[in-house]
Design a protein around this nucleic acid. Structure first.
Lengths: 343, 343
DNA sequence: ATTCAAATTTTACTCCCGTAAATAATTGGA
DNA sequence: TCCAATTATTTACGGGAGTAAAATTTGAAT
């Protein structure tokens, strides 16, 4: 495919012998021109290396056919997986996807939204930081760009939310653990940035009280995103100081649980539900590596597919509806217990 | 910050009382205008919500000040971490970053490069798939866009490569393992897509032969990116069929090792170098979770910082040099042994 | 107050493509 | 073969900002 260098559609029109407006139609939808014309264009494209300038295109379109995806941390496997899943669905629907990680702080989140706004996306799916988020800024952003929140909700912000039903998560795990052994205590970060964590804490409290049991919290005073480290260090310290009144530990999320398993291992505490085990450990999220921990981690699974599927569907409806729903929509997916060896 | 809606720079010039060309200068570099003017602009920006349209900007620039980053799989923690690290450095240098995952197949990689080309990036950093890559396509891409390969090399493609010295990796681990116990056998995927894997295999063979030892390969016949699963299933099967002639297993990468550790755990083989341990296991890469496995994983560390730092630096030099170096540059960083509990 | 270089404004053109209106050329069906 | 409907071409304008050149203002130093 060589010929002279083609700079723009004008030149391509010259060399291909097809008028520019027709070419413009072709590039927007190859089926919108007559078959014979389409063939002619495609033959020319094989000879000359031309592709429309995306910036010039988007400058004139109201629709850029780009979907922005923002998650707190692209290096977190759980978010990476969900972001990837959403991206794939957008591509299937003929949209581009632009991924942003907010790097765990409010400034990063605002920056990501700023960059996104400059891209004039058709819509945005965002998993907000939560407590740390600049709530006003996000609310304002939602006014301007059709936006669906997912994973973590912010009260009254945006037109829709899609996430997991944390109450269902907790109920399932608490119910299962108490039914099959000692009641669980709850292992978590003391001041979590993550609203899911808070919902789970409350869920645990309620679930325990409903069973007539006293909730017990073991809290690590740390912050940030290094949950494995926090779970490990906090776990070591809690074990040494005998902070666990029962042999069953329910972790607020799987990454914390992975770190805690490492702590148990180091301390020589065998984890599992069989004979000779000193501890039972369970988590939440069904982290991609939960099946490869030692022992494999019993956890409560997100249905990633559901969340991304529904999130994208909701976003497209929102775009269709011009960015406004009659009333705010919240969709929560229930959990599924993933029973493995650790509890 | 409310006022009338500002559509473009023209309008912002009106309301702020500053001429459009000056505003244009300001937005390209706030320091290029007089201090007093800068103040005036910034005061106006507080009142009116205006930001330049990125499409219109990039339409005229040869430089879009965007750096493309392409990795095989954004959901792989090792790549996620390195991508994030590169992104941060680009942002610091005043560039935007566009992340793409090639989703593990050649088509995905080509698509990513296509999207990137449309963005007219100033430069690209790509960790190619390797054997599966469409080599010609990538070579062609490198002709058009200043591109630095990293992590995995493709012979003679592009102007520069930055990665790890796999020979050094392997030497360190083989040397350490043989010095402190039985000689290692090498656990790996039979037909790896990844050129690093092949380099490591060869490195192992050489290192063993240099020590006068017979190299032993234990290969799993599988493919894809689910290394934990492959390591686990392949591990179970290899253990059951007594494929390991020694008690020491060197894994081609850490994700494989994580799966293999799970297999050992399930089979009741205690891993470590202490008394009562049946196995020693080591990996390569220093996966973010290597410090939280059971037991913690002895591995050979990438210096992510070095690779991303040098990669970005090299790319900027390449851009500076107009996309061509006198001769191809290859930078390899040596490894650092991360000694932990597993071996 | 005078002078002069630096900064700003005015004006005008460019980038590449979307899109609308009027006109011309192709279709395919009766 | 001819007509009407479909498709393509011509022409012209607009979008939002970069940028060059000339004219003007600013500010600091003399």
């Amino acid at each position: 495919m060589e010929g002279r260098e083609i700079k723009n559609m004008e030149e391509f029109a010259e060399v291909s012998g097809i008028s520019r407006p027709t070419l413009s139609k072709y590039f927007q939808d190859p089926d919108s021109v007559r078959q014979s014309t389409r063939k002619r264009v495609e033959r020319a494209l094989q000879i000359y290396d031309y592709r429309p300038n995306i910036f010039a295109i988007n400058q004139n379109r109201k629709l850029t056919r780009t979907i922005g995806i923002v998650v707190p941390n692209l290096a977190d496997p759980v978010f990476a997986e969900i972001a990837w899943s959403i991206e794939r669905r957008c591509l299937e629907a003929g949209y581009r996807a632009a991924l942003f990680g907010s790097h765990g702080d409010s400034k990063g989140e605002v920056d990501a939204l700023d960059s996104l706004q400059a891209l004039r996306p058709s819509g945005v799916l965002i998993a907000p930081l939560g407590r740390l988020s600049n709530k006003d800024y996000i609310a304002q952003f939602c006014e301007k760009v059709p936006t669906v929140l997912f994973d973590r909700d912010i009260d009254e912000v945006g037109e829709a939310f899609v996430g997991s039903d944390n109450a269902s998560f907790i109920n399932q795990s608490v119910e299962y653990l108490t039914r099959t052994g000692e009641a669980p205590c709850f292992f978590e970060v003391k001041n979590p940035a993550n609203p899911n964590s808070i919902a789970r804490r409350l869920g645990y409290k309620k679930a325990m009280e409903a069973l007539g049991l006293e909730p017990v919290f073991v809290q690590v005073d740390d912050e940030g995103w290094e949950f494995e480290r926090i779970g490990y260090e906090g776990g070591i310290s809690a074990i040494e100081n005998r902070k666990f009144p029962t042999n069953t530990v329910l972790c607020s999320n799987d990454r914390l649980a992975i770190g805690f398993l490492a702590a148990c291992y180091e301390k020589g505490l065998r984890v599992g539900r069989g004979k000779g085990c000193a501890m039972r450990v369970a988590g939440h999220d069904d982290h991609p590596q939960a099946r490869y921990t030692c022992p494999t981690l019993t956890t409560v699974a997100h249905e990633y597919g559901n969340v991304s599927n529904c999130g994208v569907k909701t976003l497209f409806e929102l775009i269709e509806a011009g960015g406004r729903f009659d009333q705010r929509r919240a969709t929560l997916f229930p959990a599924r217990l993933a029973l493995r060896e650790s509890a």
